[in-house]
């Protein structure tokens, strides 16, 4: 009975296996980035960035149709341009990072919608926004897996400076340009994952994989590395649950996955060990920090 509920769908249907493989790969790449985003208070940047890549992907679609390389490169370019421009504006004008980014991503999003409305129909726009995780073909799967690998590798490289830049940017600045380099690399990895995710889950849902698992993990573990590992696990679990939900209850796949992730988040929010609703109510009045743990890394 359990087998029928949990495993049978994947045994019977190739498209379910591919969807799961794609989501697992995406989780491995995107979820750890979410932890960093959370730490740097950039969670909304993730969502904004997923909109920012739209005109690039739309341009690729307009010129080359539903072509994987074209839309990937286009999305990458658009995301990086927005990140760069907002960085420049932050540096040389009075605007801070959040406002400058907001300005550019909104322009980018509008451009994307305009481009799509020029040639495509509303259907095409919906596909771009919502993706088709059930339609993952080989090239898309390879792309997602490659992005995940690159992402994990890249994250390992810049893990320390990234954390330092978040923790004590002044200190890192003295040591050299590592801070800004690692920030740039991090943004690159983020855009890469969003572009990879948007082929399968669509722009709107891809960011769910980045933010929701990381936010959930925050309520269970303290150490950064452990949070990353847990958020990856949560992302994978949410993907599995979502696919099963889509199979048994007939809900659209990417929405089902996002809802599952959302439920896991709400559960963590209410019942988690650290700083959740339950934990806040249980702690004594003068203890503001949780119990000490072993060395984090």
């Amino acid at each position: 009975m359990i087998a029928e509920l949990l495993w049978q769908p994947f045994v019977d249907y190739g498209f379910m296996r591919r969807a799961l493989a794609g989501c697992l790969a995406l989780s491995a790449g995107a979820a750890p980035l979410g932890t960093i985003l959370l730490l740097r208070r950039m969670s909304l940047v993730g969502d904004a960035m997923s909109h920012a890549i739209l005109p690039g992907a739309a341009l690729g679609y307009l010129l080359f149709g539903l072509s994987l390389p074209a839309m990937t490169i286009g999305g990458l370019a658009a995301g990086l341009i927005v990140a760069m421009l907002s960085g420049v504006v932050t540096r040389y004008t009075a605007l801070r990072e959040d406002a400058s980014f907001a300005g550019f991503y909104l322009i980018s999003l509008a451009l994307g919608v305009l481009l799509i409305s020029l040639r495509g129909s509303n259907v095409d726009l919906l596909h771009v926004l919502f993706g088709s995780v059930l339609a993952l073909d080989d090239p898309t799967l390879y792309l997602t897996a490659t992005i995940a690998s690159l992402s994990m590798l890249g994250l390992a490289l810049v893990y320390r400076p990234l954390l330092m830049e978040c923790l004590d940017p002044g200190f890192l600045r003295l040591q050299g340009p590592m801070g800004s380099i690692s920030h740039a690399l991090f943004m690159l990895l983020l855009v890469l994952n969003l572009v990879g995710g948007f082929h399968s889950l669509g722009t709107l849902m891809a960011v769910a994989l980045v933010v929701l698992p990381a936010a959930s993990a925050r309520f269970w573990l303290r150490g950064v590395g452990l949070q990353m590992a847990l958020s990856t696990a949560i992302a994978m679990a949410g993907s599995l649950l979502g696919l099963l939900l889509s199979y048994h209850a007939g809900i659209a796949a990417s929405a089902a996955i996002t809802l599952s992730l959302g439920c896991l988040y709400l559960l963590s929010l209410c019942l988690g060990r650290l700083g959740s609703v339950r934990a806040q109510r249980q702690r004594p009045a003068n203890d503001s920090v949780s119990e000490p743990m072993g060395v984090s890394e």
Binding site: L39, A156, L157, V158, Y159, R160, P161, L163, M164, C166, L167, D168, P169, G170, F171, Q175, M178, S182, R222, G223, V224, Q227, V295, S296, E297
Partner: peptide
């Protein structure tokens, strides 16, 4: 530095914080 830009509740241990001083020797990796 004077103004403490450090994130006070960042999840890092004391040992890891102090080890940042060894950056010149350890680098990123």
């Amino acid at each position: 530095a004077q103004a403490c830009e450090v994130e006070r509740d960042f999840p890092i241990s004391v040992e890891d914080f102090v080890s940042m001083g060894l950056w010149a020797q350890t680098g990123a990796l």
